[in-house]
Write a protein that binds this DNA or RNA. Structure first.
Lengths: 335, 335
DNA sequence: TTGTAGGCGTTATCAG
DNA sequence: CTGATAACGCCTACAA
């Protein structure tokens, strides 16, 4: 392995000078600097990250703690984080499938000394209290977590507005028997969407039917199953709001199998607006969520917290959504 | 920051003893060991990764270099890698959007001293020659790369068999005018699937019509567009093989818009068997690819290369696929 | 069974 | 502008 000493020897200077060249530290004569730089590249010299972090106590790396996550949401979040990371020269350590407090804590422990900060995504609603006292080893940004109003930086989706918009859209099309397929039981996003659904129904003076709340878990399969259950209920709902697109697509396939027309017999709406939403049959009305931006924003917050170090006021961001009207709930103008 | 010295002082032993406890190094009296362990956890002591790597020259971290990648394929690969990584106590540094040689090389340089080995995923066909002489800083496993028969460890999908199976399935249903929507132009998988399609047609003594080869790029949108183009051709194809499911779904939506029945008027088949394939209308006949296993396998190979160090014979793995018959090409038995 | 001490590759401080 | 040199936190012979 080629070290800073090799470069120094070859360039007939001290290691200190080489170090200065690479860190923009002190003043170095232009010619010396160039010579060192040339020799370094010729020797394919790369500073040893560990040694550097030992003395600077910074790693230029940030950790990302994720729950079990499948599909588009996961990859988009990572993509957003990566975009912001590479823009600022940070590396990314990612660690998957963390659910409860102990797993998160052990993961954070394992990351000590490897990262300068951490982005935690833990949408489990029960993690709220658990994460209340996170180790303050390094700055933390909470991504789509259940904790609200704390002293942490956080980024969340504005689920309430989005779900309300969907329900209002359905109501404006004359629907009164509106069912919901809920998300995974203890998931924040699913929970918030459910609450907003209820509240929107109340606002529209629609009496709520508890049996219209079918349980799902964000998968196509669960959406399929839930829709089948919903079809048994009398009076049968005339609209189904699935808490995410995957379940909406599962529901669509269940309705098709049952010979039910969409949107004529039953309207269907989703949430997230994943890419495929516009290509299913019929194209799915949904709520667009800027997923990549979620990750990008989280990373940006972390970076700025890292820069400011002490003087940094945590803020809670709420990312807006957009109603995307296609044809699974009938034409836009109709009411 | 609490260091090994703090633990040593608190436990009235030398740092050497503490180190031994944590590395299973030399012999330590049972009682001493327990005391040190207790104090360490009480103090929340975690060895500094950088300092350790400085002397052991190992990092317990592996790097993952990926191209721009969207959707399910990406997340599944990562998931597979992560499963194998956590099983063996390795951390994961991931780095996105690397296409050409220079980007890969600079990324690898940036990882020097941070990782013990690297998994490179670079499905660009042109990268073949470019990557021929990778820096041999650390062990490398090629994941879905175009390089074949080299001295590198590699894991690839058996695209040829899969594509051939699809075409034969179509032929067995009486189709002779079989079109293909190709993948991204320089993508290995897309390329191999195209070649296998041609070869399967030849085997079936079907004359090839170059205009039946529509260009796609693995996105739903490109599949949609390609299908529309295909519909203009006379004689019109009676079957469309899309090089992946996303494009097949895009094609499905184009056919629906054109009022073409599937599979009655035109049969459609995909590749990958992503989760959603069974929920689209009609359920998509496809080739199942064990994506997560791809990542898991790559990681396993890297680990074993890391263990053996010198004595390790690189091997090229080809992951098998399975034909999944649903209804987008007509019933299974029919011919 | 335990302690001492040298060194891993860098950066930072202080003299020149 | 440049060069010694002392840390940084840890592991590992070598001694005791």
């Amino acid at each position: 392995m080629v070290t800073i000493r090799d470069v120094a020897r070859e360039a007939h200077v001290s290691v200190a000078t080489v170090s200065r060249v690479f860190n923009g530290g002190g003043p170095v004569r232009e010619e010396t600097s160039r010579r060192i730089r040339d020799i370094a590249t010729a020797l394919r010299y790369v500073p040893h990250a560990g040694a550097r972090s030992l003395i600077t106590s910074r790693t230029s790396t940030i950790g990302v703690l994720l729950p079990d996550l499948y599909g588009e949401f996961f990859s988009e979040v990572i993509r957003g984080i990566d975009i912001a990371a590479r823009r600022t020269g940070y590396h990314l350590i990612i660690s998957n499938s963390h659910h409860d407090k102990s797993e998160i804590e052990s993961a954070m422990r394992a990351m000590r000394g490897r990262v300068d900060g951490v982005i935690i995504m833990s949408p489990d609603i029960d993690a709220q209290a658990l994460m209340a006292n996170l180790p303050d080893a390094h700055p933390v940004v909470l991504l789509n977590c259940a904790i609200r109003g704390t002293a942490f930086d956080s980024v969340n989706i504005d689920n309430a507005r989005g779900a309300r918009a969907i329900v209002q859209h359905l109501v404006s099309h004359g629907h009164r028997r509106i069912a919901i397929i809920t998300g995974a039981p203890r998931n924040v996003d699913g929970h918030e969407r459910l609450l907003a659904y209820r509240s929107a129904l109340r606002s529209a003076s629609i009496e709520q039917n508890p049996s219209y709340e079918a349980h799902g878990s964000f998968t196509e399969e669960s959406g399929h199953e839930a829709a089948r259950l919903l079809l048994e209920i009398r009076p049968r709902p005339t609209a189904i709001f699935a808490a995410n697109d995957s379940m909406a697509i599962g529901a669509l396939s269940a309705l098709r199998e049952a010979g039910i027309g969409v949107p004529d017999d039953i309207a269907v709406a989703g949430f997230d607006d994943i890419t495929i939403a516009r290509y299913v049959n019929p194209p799915l009305t949904s709520v667009h969520v800027p997923i990549a931006e979620l990750g990008e924003r989280a990373m940006a917050k972390l970076i700025s917290a890292l820069r400011d170090k002490d003087r940094h006021a945590p803020r809670q961001d709420l990312l807006g959504t957009t109603l995307v009207i296609r044809s699974s709930c009938g034409p836009p103008g109709h009411s």
